[in-house]
Every structure is written in structure tokens, then in C-alpha cells.
Design a protein around this nucleic acid. Structure first.
Lengths: 140, 140
DNA sequence: CCGGATCCGTAGAGATACTG
DNA sequence: CAGTATCTCTACGGATCCGG
């Protein structure tokens, strides 16, 4: 077995984690799919495919199975997500937040809500920026 | 001129932004270098190279000039960062947070501090996870 | 059938070298 | 010093396979 991502990280980070441990966790939490997974799990526990669909609902062209699995593994390893694999057929795996994960998820959700709330301001800023940029090009 | 990143994004996002605008802003804010830039600028305004050095101090193997420029342009376009380019020789450009940027940066910093604080818990969780994983392999 | 693991192709992140 | 052009390489998605 190779487990390029999770275990691979475990061995590579023998040096990488040593230099700046918390930055990596921060990157996991703020990663593209990590953010969405945490927010979604804050609502309620989800099964794998449930999570995939839920994220696809928000992210338009949702997460691939591969990336979802990878993200979940990383978050599980960091102790933010709990994985409950029931040995039944068809297999059923439930994901939920740990106490630690809930703390992180709440912060992330707060940030997401802020972003959503401030969106109009951002849109205005962009328009101004783009117009200035366009004028500059026209002037040349 | 192409301006592959900033202006390129402006045209590509005619469709991309239309589907889910705020997710993109969230990604800018939580992006690898975006996080560090915001936190660093929360301290005080920085010049380009100052910023680069400051981030290199935290991130071990810091940000490349290209990525820093790109990140700053994105954040400027979103109205989070203010760019003050003084027409002198040698060129001097100061970056600072806007009001909007300060709000975002404070949230990001809070999250970063939380991560730092909870690092021991994460480390323990990882150890448990890795050991379980190792045992599973040994059993096979 | 579901939850992944693996292999491979591509686009975008990233470093390096160059310019004003 | 600040920023761009060019090249490299990794992260991500898609298809396929597998074990339960």
C-alpha cells in the first residue's frame, strides 16, 4: 500500500510539519473542499454521497469522489472529523464533526457568512477596479 | 497584454461568478497566500518586499514574487487591500487593508490563532490515527 | 450497489529568469 | 524594487477497478 496522500503526507511531513505545524492544519481547514465539508457537517452528519451531493449543490460542478475522500481523510487525521464505517451491505459510512472540528467549522462558517453578507461591497470594488483597468488600456 | 490572472479571471468569471459569487471571494480570502497576506497586513502596512520577507518568516520557503503579486492583485480587486504606488525611483508601493479587508483579516487571524492554540490536540489525533493505520498494515 | 483506491491527463499553482 | 514572461510540476478531475 502506498496511500500517497494521507500516509504520504505523514512521511513527507516528517520535515515539513517540523518547520511550521499549525500552518498545515490551517491549510487543511481553509482548503477548497475542507471549508465546504466543515460547513456542511456543521448542519448534521452526512454519508459520503450525501456530502458529495450537498456540496455539489453549493459549489456548482461539485467535488470529485477522489477529492472528497482525500479531504475527509485529512480532516479525520487532524481529529476534526469522525468517520463511522458500518460493516453492512451496501456499505454505509457516516461522517460527523468532533468537538475540535465543530470549533473550527463554526469559525469557518462565520467567515463564509461574512463573505456572503459583504458580497455587494466586493462586487462594487471589482467594478471600480475593472473599469479603471479598462480605461487604462484604452488610454494606451 | 494578456494579464492572464487578474483580467483573465475577470472575463472567465462572467460565467463562473454568476453561479456562486461569494464562494470565489471566500477562496481568495482563505487561499494559501491570501491568509498570510491579510494577517500580516493587519499588523501594519507593508511594502511588496517587506511583505515577502515577513511571509517567508512564517511560511518557511516563502511566497514567490509571482504568487505574491497575484494574490495582492486579487485581494485588491475584491476591495480588501489598498495599493498605494508612489511614482518614485526606485519604485515604492505600499499595501494596506481597506475597512472591508480589516474585517476579513480579523476573522482569518482568529482562525489562525485558534489553529495554533489547538495544535496539541491535532498532534495527538494524528498520532492516534497514524498508529491505528500502522497496526492495520502490520495485521495484513 | 456504495465507498473508496489507483492510474493517467490536464489546468493552474508555483519557482526561476528577465524587464522597467 | 516591483512586477512580468516563461518554464516546471503538483493538485485536481475523470475513468476504472475493487472489496464488502
Amino acid at each position: 500500500m502506498t496511500v500517497s496522500t494521507v500516509t504520504g503526507a505523514a512521511s513527507r511531513t516528517v520535515s515539513a510539519e517540523a518547520m511550521c505545524p499549525y500552518r498545515l492544519v490551517l491549510e487543511h481547514v481553509t482548503s477548497r473542499w475542507g471549508v465546504l465539508v466543515l460547513i456542511e457537517l456543521l448542519e448534521r452528519p452526512h454519508r459520503f454521497s450525501e456530502l458529495r451531493r450537498a456540496i455539489g449543490r453549493v459549489s456548482e460542478k461539485g467535488v470529485s469522489e477522489k477529492m472528497l475522500a482525500q479531504t475527509l481523510q485529512t480532516l479525520e487525521r487532524d481529529g476534526l472529523v469522525h468517520r463511522d464505517a458500518r460493516p453492512v451491505i451496501p456499505p454505509r459510512v457516516d461522517y460527523s464533526l468532533t468537538g475540535l472540528g465543530r470549533e473550527a467549522a463554526e469559525q469557518v462558517r462565520t467567515l463564509a457568512e461574512w463573505t456572503h453578507r459583504r458580497m455587494p461591497d466586493v462586487a462594487r470594488a471589482r467594478q471600480t477596479y475593472d473599469e479603471a483597468r479598462t480605461d487604462a488600456v484604452r488610454a494606451s
